[in-house]
């Protein structure tokens, strides 16, 4: 599904190149649940951003579904966002002016999903995540865990093939974090959704089936588990 070949990323500052990623070559297959681990500043988030096409690599090529997407135009990128990729953020990033229902509905609106279809999908998600009662509340009226549930529901609404999650439990207490990780595991097992997450926690990484460890921009270890 994702194929990275010799990815490099550096920031030039006064002629000095600060490398964030060096010679990263890896492949992520459909149905995998990958955790990217490593110390702060190792380049985990940058790698995830490149996978999500939020940043472009300085060198190297990136294939998404066998297609070269290293340098992609806005139109094509947006098509991928709408149909194939879902994002989950550490700070949830729900839109404060929208209710829970509207937040989940937003990606469907941009995808031009019909109104009936939207209703049934959102109802399904609300039901699955047990947040039906909260649908008319605004994000600031929810706990962190609930906000992240909404964030995941929003990412799932467009029925993506892959979810990219940047420290999805980083702002959560451990009980809530466990719930979220269980949910990811279930989504991966039951719905076959590919998941790539960045995490600091060994415990969270244990929910997946593969751990990529990065140190100083280089892949140190690529471990299959479970």
């Amino acid at each position: 599904m994702i194929k990275l070949e010799n990815i490099e990323k550096y920031y030039a500052n006064k002629g000095v190149k600060n490398y964030v990623l060096r010679h990263v070559t890896t492949q992520i297959n459909k149905g995998e649940f990958v955790s990217i681990m490593g110390p702060s500043g190792a380049g985990k988030s940058t790698l995830l951003n490149i996978m999500g096409m939020l940043e472009e690599p300085t060198y190297g090529s990136y294939f998404f579904n066998e297609e070269d997407v290293t340098h992609l135009g806005e139109r094509k990128k947006i098509e991928l966002y709408r149909n194939h990729i879902g994002f989950v953020f550490q700070a949830y990033h729900l839109i404060d002016e929208m209710t829970v229902y509207e937040n989940i509905e937003a990606p469907l609106l941009y995808k031009n999903v019909s109104s009936g279809e939207r209703k049934s999908r959102i109802a399904d998600l609300l039901d699955r995540f047990n947040i039906v009662a909260k649908k008319d509340l605004f994000p600031n009226q929810l706990s962190g865990g609930q906000q992240q549930l909404v964030g995941i529901a929003r990412a799932l609404a467009a029925q993506p093939a892959i979810i990219l999650a940047d420290e999805p439990t980083g702002n959560l207490q451990s009980v809530q974090a466990e719930e979220i990780m269980e949910l990811f595991k279930k989504l991966n097992r039951e719905d076959g959704i590919t998941i790539v997450q960045v995490t600091h926690s060994e415990k969270n990484a244990g929910y997946g089936n593969r751990i990529i460890t990065i140190e100083d921009g280089v892949i140190k270890e690529d471990l299959k588990i479970g």
């Binding site: 806005e74 966002y81 709408r82 994002f87 839109i95 404060d96 990606p107 941009y110």
Partner: peptide
């Protein structure tokens, strides 16, 4: 800013 960022990763065109 956040709204813009989120909307962009949802697949919203800039002109929209």
């Amino acid at each position: 800013a956040k709204e813009v960022g989120v909307k962009k990763v949802m697949g919203v065109f800039r002109y929209q």
